[in-house]
Design a protein around this nucleic acid. Structure first.
Lengths: 359, 359
DNA sequence: TTGAAAGCGCTAACAA
DNA sequence: TTGTTAGCGCTTTCAA
């Protein structure tokens, strides 16, 4: 029943079993046999033998010899956000489709740890690295460049390597327009009713702020200054910002733009400490998509970045080895309130049929 | 400025530079030098040389030779759920703490793909594997056993290997009690008001059903039959189940237990198609925690599994190489409605201070 | 159409 | 206290 732990077969085992040499076996098993002009017959024999012995190549050995590991790395700041976990999910699918083994790691928004983490990936000879929202993209770039590891930035651009990012300005404009329009249906707005929370001094935040202000100016005619609060990507800091606003104004802004789902969690913390009246009639926009966030007890507009397109473009860039530090923009999607989009989960087959009652 | 791509230093480079032999260098650099009785002086010299050359060992070569790769695998069904993404996050931290490089992969709830995925991990000689919620734990077990890879089941037990799981029955009881108590405050309940959706014929679902029924019987005095709908772990199927219930009864149950956050997404889809009256006064319990889910426009009680304890116990089991197929239970936590718990995100330092306005 | 042989970077006996 | 040597399993010339 339980199969014994058996030593893994090597090309030498198959060499002996087939009567061919190890190099022939190797060529057959790694697909280079056609161009090595090995006869179909020999190949077939070896292949069926390999199946029989459950042969799988030792990737470490292959990597050591050929200096191509088949590993593709993805550096994330954190996992547990719908945005980044979708990215991990999508990255895995795409890497596997290309015959690579994905390794996803997180740098925890610490430049030092980002570099260490990437160093450790490089010690395993990853073939390529996707850098998603690194705090210090250029530090990571240097590490990669030194080791000759091809890399692209995803979502947050860097100066030194190609980048594929969301069109943050356009997305922010769409989001800002949507929440203002919605809030105006509930009564006229003044500029001070429209606020923005979250983010820091990075490219994405800057672009979003530009888009936010552009729309405000379009709507209200005048530029406005004091309508943004930077809180970094921290739920705690964001909650504090809401508390302070609430202290000063006795309520939250009628209408506001939250810079990411991580900052959105700061709003949750605020809500946990206050009851409905503090946020009875608010309209919220969040630059990120989370299905549960979409159904909170007030209208929430969200922006869903097009992750799979970003990653696909990223793989393409790696393949063509574009040398410039070009930036590719991908349009995100505006998601109206109370919308449960389908996601990767829906693609899965689920063996258990509906209506089979257990119990 | 930009450092050239330089060939990585090897122990031979350091051997030449230091005048010591390669094996001495190797011993110094992998920490075995004390027991090889190499002089402190030689060691120091080599170590500082290594720093200077930015030496890092080639892990493929080390793995090939020593047959220990330093890779630890985690097999997940999917990533993009708060539960599994927290697991990935926590796993990474714990693996790194132990000097291992974590590799997280998803099996997409397909037994065939689970096995293939694990095979590919094994081709890279992973040292150990955590199996979290595999559809076919025993199939995965066989693959591991054959290759001699130590493994533990997390969250969903298997017969053939040690398992660390949540106390599903106890958690389900706590959750069921909580929602019934809450709903009773809004008026008397009959057994038909208390329902359960989601899950399939696996250990976790079975235990939760037992807990659910135990509490119902305790409260209402009689056992009840037709109060559970199995929908697998699919948002679409779960949405359908809510639709059907709604068709039959003109509303949702007063009070119901949802088997996972994935099924909870099915409720979102239902909500997207209906307005408030269909779920005005419902009380929901969900066996999983999601901060946004906790703030929906009706009371949501949630169960948060203790992921870091489960993983820690898992690592312990691997270390002691317990042979039996023992099951370790870990108590989960009941989370009342409107609760934004702190998570791994909060542990991160965030360099950007509050109140620095950009724009 | 195939095989022999060298070597990727490292570890671990065994010798000295 | 250190060096020599023989591989780990594979790929890749080069020769036959």
């Amino acid at each position: 029943m339980t199969e014994k732990e058996q030593k893994k077969a090597t090309i030498y085992d198959l060499s002996v079993a087939s009567g061919a040499s190890a190099s022939t076996v190797s060529a057959v098993l790694n697909g280079t046999w056609r161009k090595r002009r090995i006869s179909e017959e020999t190949a077939d024999r070896i292949i069926s033998l390999a199946k029989e012995h459950r042969y799988t190549a030792n990737r470490q050995a292959r990597a050591l010899r050929s200096s191509r590991s088949g590993l593709a790395g993805l550096l994330l700041p954190v996992y547990d956000t719908r945005f980044f976990s979708s990215m991990a999910q999508t990255f895995e699918a795409q890497a596997r489709k290309r015959g690579l083994l994905p390794i996803v790691v997180s740098g925890r928004r610490d430049p030092e740890e980002e570099r260490r983490t990437v160093e450790s990936l490089i010690a395993y000879s990853i073939d390529s690295l996707f850098i998603a929202g690194a705090t210090d993209p250029d530090g990571v770039h240097r590490v990669c460049a030194r080791a000759g590891v091809p890399h692209v930035n995803i979502d947050l651009p860097g100066d030194k390597a190609c980048s594929v990012i969301s069109d943050n300005r356009q997305g922010a404009k769409a989001l800002t327009s949507a929440i203002i329009r919605h809030a105006q249906q509930q009564g006229p707005l003044v500029p001070g009713d429209v606020y923005m929370f979250g983010g820091r001094n990075d490219h994405a935040s800057r672009e979003r702020i530009v888009g936010f202000h552009a729309v405000k100016e379009e709507v209200f005619g005048v530029p406005d200054g004091d309508d943004f609060e930077s809180t970094g990507y921290s739920p705690g800091m964001t909650a504090l910002a809401f508390e302070r606003f609430h202290e000063r104004h006795g309520r939250l802004p009628r209408c506001f733009f939250i810079n990411s789902s991580i900052n959105f969690e700061g709003l949750l913390r605020f809500m946990g400490k206050h009851d409905g009246e503090a946020f009875d009639d608010i309209v919220v926009g969040c630059f990120d998509y989370d299905p549960f966030g979409s159904f909170l007890p007030f209208p929430v507009y969200m922006i869903r970045p097009n992750i799979s397109e970003m990653l696909e473009k990223g793989f393409d860039l790696l393949d063509v080895a574009e040398d410039a530090s070009q930036i590719v923009l991908v349009e995100p999607q505006l998601v109206p309130p109370r919308t449960a989009l389908e996601g990767p989960l829906d693609a899965l087959r689920d063996p258990s049929p509906l209506g089979v009652t257990l119990a």
